[in-house]
Design a protein around this nucleic acid. Structure first.
Length: 275
DNA sequence: CCAATTGTTATTTA
DNA sequence: ATAAATAACAATTG
């Protein structure tokens, strides 16, 4: 499920536990989500530590502990975080639980495409610092996008938008939302975009990220009750999932196909192949 | 039983 | 050798 703004939503859930000590750590040893993680070290260092802060980058979350400890969580396809009462009993797919006095912080992931990482160094670990700079940072320029599209010239633009090294945080539905807003056909080859299309793509990437963070994660305001309750009906988001949906702007039928290996939805009336 | 799933990575193909 | 396409991962739901 989780892309950029959803990841921020799930990070914010756990911020209920900021400033509180971890009394115990419960985890499902040997499960796939702990590949590449020293679970013994995680347990030893986090037990008795205090959760002091957290942040998100792309599709990843980082939780910082005092006196030491960096906990990284990637939600994969089906992961989520929850806050449960102190007497909650962990369920089947609750792979990591941080027990605090007044609550339990739960990481749940049925499909286990997600990942948990831990590092106890002084500085943030490289698996965190090497994540590409945000689409909303000053480093995400039209020139950088144009150069990247040139290097991926023979791939459909839909596939290119899913590449995290240049479009960190963009996932399947956000990619479709960006292309729909920019009026670009998902099958158009990256090297075939006109300069105007590249500018539109850059602009809509930033716009969709900004709007999604506001609507989904409630950035700068109150935390939404649920993930999608504030997403406007005018977005492609609400119309893309089922066959038979219509473009909310034109009322014309939407099309579906597998592009770049992923289910893709677009509006043929507005998104046409150029050249 | 069959097909689908908002992600990533290893492997295969071109 | 490089880049694009595909398979694989695991579990559940319709």
């Amino acid at each position: 499920m989780p892309e950029l703004a959803e990841v921020e939503f799930f990070r914010r859930r756990w911020s209920a536990g900021h400033g509180a000590k971890i009394l115990a750590v419960k985890l499902h040893e040997g499960k796939k989500v702990f590949r590449g993680c020293d679970t013994a070290l995680l347990k030893r260092k986090l037990t008795g530590a205090k959760l002091v802060g957290s942040e998100t980058k792309a599709k990843q979350m980082l939780f910082h502990f005092s006196p030491r400890g960096w906990l990284g969580i990637h939600l994969g396809m089906s992961g989520e975080t929850r806050v449960e009462a102190p007497d909650y009993v962990a369920a089947k797919h609750d792979h990591l639980v941080l027990v605090q006095k007044d609550r339990q912080l739960v990481f749940n992931d049925p499909r286990m495409f997600g990942a948990v990482l831990f590092d106890d160094g002084q500085d943030a670990p490289t698996w965190w610092t090497r994540i590409a700079p945000s689409i909303l940072s000053t480093e995400f320029t039209v020139e950088a996008v144009a150069a990247f599209l040139k290097r991926r010239a023979r791939a459909p633009i839909k596939a290119v938008l899913l590449m995290q090294e240049r479009f960190p945080g963009i996932g399947n539905w956000m990619a479709d939302e960006v292309l729909w807003r920019a009026a670009i056909h998902p099958r158009q080859l990256a090297g075939q975009l006109t300069p105007a299309q590249v500018r539109a793509l850059h602009r809509e990437c930033r716009k969709v990220c900004t709007l999604a963070l506001d609507k989904i994660a409630g950035r700068g305001g109150a935390m939404p009750k649920d993930l999608n309750v504030n997403i406007p009906k005018s977005w492609l988001f609400w119309h893309r999932w089922r066959q038979g949906g219509n473009d909310p702007r034109t009322g014309t039928p939407l099309a579906h196909a597998t592009i770049g290996g992923r289910t893709t939805c677009w509006s043929p009336a507005r998104q046409k192949l150029v050249r």
